[in-house]
Amino acid sequence: MSHAGDSLPRPGDEPEGALRVQDLDLNLLKTFNAVYAEKHVGRAALRLGITQPSVSHALGRLRLLFRDALFVRTGGGVEPTPRAQRLAASIERSLSILQAVLDEGAQFLPASSRRTFRLYMSDFAESAFLPTLLRELDERAPGVVIETLQIDDSQFNGAIESGRIDFALGNFPQAFSHFHSCELLRERYVLMMPRRVAERYALTDRFVLDATVPPTLQFISVSSHPQASALLDEHGLTSRVRVAVPNFMVVPAILYRCDYALILPRTVARAFAPLGEMAAFEIANASTWPVSAYWHRRFDADPGHRWLRALLMELFRIGAREPYESWLAIPPNLRPPASGA
């Protein structure tokens, strides 16, 4: 009895003499493409950078494989047979696809790329770095997309190892030691308040938060930064906290309408300065910490990753160089006075 499955081809059932991919040498396809384009064996050899006998030998192998003359001599060179004409478009397309695959792994063209990079940033890194990075991408890589992800601390290392995120920007002491990183800058906490509040209390630019604090000044606490809360406690200011918020996003709106102060990273203070004419002051005993870019070493050779890495270093690896306005995305007409912190 016959079964429907009996008519299905099985491995090894190819017609006798059928050409298989493993029988092909890539150089043969390149030779075919060159001869078809040049219609001349000598010019094809020059195009390929090989000798004319080598081209003739390759054509001989092609004729055996395809069981067709492929190219026949004419007075001015060679002309393709009907079989060669049918093959030409497919061979050229296959070589183009292969070249595109090779190019993708060897170079990154920012001006034409549509790649998406996924970044994980701490809240202050997102506020301080993202506007400047996007402004630069608008100029250099208008098709590149930046996606910022929020992940739990417990997922941080796994997200980098899996490639779920390309870069993490911030201070992450929990990062695995085998991750690669580069320090972008040294950060420290400062005291910030609306300039109108500083003027009301007659605080000069030389004011330092220590034992002397305006007696009626009230504070915002940012719960995502326990070090800032520790500084408030160290200076006896915890009882003056008027509002506690989870991150810095709402801070400019609060300070625009309310006469409060807060302790925050200096870079964020610089980023917020043009949003409400803020004043910033140093804090006694405020330690510094590194803000770094982290990535997995398996992406070191990826062209796109290397390009973005170099851009991050160019834009933000400023060390102790100031003013920060040189890289923060602050239009010149909105920058705070040079006398600020």
Score class of each variant (00 low, 15 high):
residue 119 L to V: 13
residue 78 V to W: 00
residue 12 G to F: 14
residue 130 L to E: 09
residue 99 Q to K: 09
residue 329 A to M: 10
residue 175 A to S: 04
residue 210 D to N: 14
residue 257 R to T: 12
residue 20 R to Y: 09
residue 2 S to Q: 05
residue 134 L to H: 12
residue 293 A to L: 11
residue 122 S to I: 07
residue 161 E to F: 03
residue 49 G to W: 07
residue 31 T to I: 13
residue 179 F to C: 02
residue 223 S to A: 13
residue 335 R to M: 11
residue 36 Y to C: 00
residue 213 V to M: 10
residue 66 F to N: 01
residue 242 R to C: 01
residue 233 D to V: 11
residue 80 P to N: 08
residue 210 D to C: 05
residue 3 H to N: 12
residue 34 A to P: 02
residue 181 S to I: 01
residue 26 L to S: 10
residue 27 N to P: 01
residue 108 F to V: 11
residue 282 E to W: 00
residue 38 E to K: 14
residue 129 F to C: 14
residue 235 H to V: 14
residue 240 R to C: 09
residue 289 W to R: 05
residue 312 L to R: 02
residue 28 L to Q: 10
residue 73 R to D: 01
residue 260 Y to N: 03
residue 142 P to A: 11
residue 233 D to N: 11
residue 61 R to I: 02
residue 185 L to I: 05
residue 198 A to M: 12
residue 272 F to M: 15
residue 134 L to K: 14
residue 318 I to F: 00
residue 294 Y to P: 00
residue 44 A to N: 00
residue 33 N to D: 15
residue 261 A to P: 02
residue 11 P to E: 10
residue 218 Q to C: 10
residue 291 V to S: 03
residue 247 N to C: 03
residue 17 G to A: 05
residue 275 L to C: 04
residue 314 E to G: 10
residue 326 S to G: 07
residue 296 H to G: 03
residue 81 T to L: 09
residue 94 S to Y: 06
residue 204 T to A: 08
residue 317 R to K: 11
residue 294 Y to S: 00
